[in-house]
Design a protein around this nucleic acid. Sequence first.
DNA 1: TGTACATCAGTGAACGCGCGTTCACTGATGTAC
DNA 2: TGTACATCAGTGAACGCGCGTTCACTGATGTAC
Lengths: 223, 223
Amino acid sequence: MTGPRALRRQQIDQQILDLGRAQLAEVGAAALSVRAIARELGMVSSAVYRYVDSRDELLTRLVVAAYTDLADAVRRAVDADSGDAVARLAAAAHGFRRWALDHPTEFALLYGSPVPGYHAPPERTNEPGTRVIAILLGLIAEAAGDAAPTVPAALNDDLSRIADEFGHTLSPGTVLNALGLWTWLIGAVGQEVTGGLGTDTFTDPAAAFDAQLTRQLTLVVPA
Amino acid sequence: MTGPRALRRQQIDQQILDLGRAQLAEVGAAALSVRAIARELGMVSSAVYRYVDSRDELLTRLVVAAYTDLADAVRRAVDADSGDAVARLAAAAHGFRRWALDHPTEFALLYGSPVPGYHAPPERTNEPGTRVIAILLGLIAEAAGDAAPTVPAALNDDLSRIADEFGHTLSPGTVLNALGLWTWLIGAVGQEVTGGLGTDTFTDPAAAFDAQLTRQLTLVVPA
DNA sequence: TGTACATCAGTGAACGCGCGTTCACTGATGTAC
DNA sequence: TGTACATCAGTGAACGCGCGTTCACTGATGTAC
């Protein structure tokens, strides 16, 4: 069942994933190359196809792995904080940022511009892709209690539906809050990761992030 | 001085830019190809090099053109609104969003993940790249008056320096506000453009955007 | 107005490169009796 | 424990593709006298 052959297979599967990640970091997802991975693996290019169906399938594996890794990092950051829900929300945001700075190209793969010619298959990608926002949603619900804002009528149905999709009974206002924070978070982290404002804009980027985060949180929890 | 030859040259220069844009839309910046443009131009590939120094230089031209086009669109949106500074700020944000939705791949070129192997030359790119945020900064200063928030000590110097770079005498708090709104704007628009939340999350995406925008603006102008 | 020369736009062939994927194959590792 | 057979990992050659860029060239358009 777990003979030496199966074991070796697992190891090489893992190596391919690691080399894929390294490739992302060096050349970006668009230039991810099966042949290059084969080279670094010391194999002939066709041999990689024993482990991977196609380049696209490899990309999907990398996407799923990145989502999972990210969600785990955020989860750990939340669990490591013993404060109230707002404090843990802030911890989640900082954890998200930290992971993104440590894994810039994987972040870009998940939240950056789409890879030309590649479409992630929703059935493998959707669930891992929503794990982080689900964490935020839970914390926001806990932090805000019943004091969620009223929402424009045009959005009510949509927001209720989204609440249902996440399985919680959440008020539309809470969902709006969560989406707002989520949007801000991706934007802020994305800009920092891709050097949007120039690399040396702030001497203490973490402090700048925290200042903005604090202000965003005032939108989400009752003052 | 402007003989038929020079005229034709201008026309072809323009065509190359247009075809480049079309390419961006079809295959993304990473796959932008001089040869493909030559084909569509009905020329042999080497002929394009009479008009363009290299693929990278063409990319730079496209970046500059996109920045300029975007800034013009935002400018127009602001000028078309006769309301107060807050109303014009909202108009600017909506104008920004509109342009991005109309030019998704150009938006990705400017604010998405970097194109592998390409680095925009700052001396051609910096100035056009800051035009939009300069517009926002002006409106925010006008809207907020002197009522800007206090900022964490760690950020004071940086924010003052940024204010200087934009030539206005702005309080650090105002600059913090502007950067916050800017970050949010790119994040929100970027997610909508790349379909970050799934394409059919909101039946009325503009209303969702506006709801979030309204809340962001409360952070920027005194209530 | 006409001619001689310089500039310029576009051609076609070639360079060297890397890519994804298929296919028939060999030799080693595992499994069933 | 030993043998016969099936599975599997990796090879090497090949397919057809597209790319950026250089170079010597031809023929047309412009310019100076």
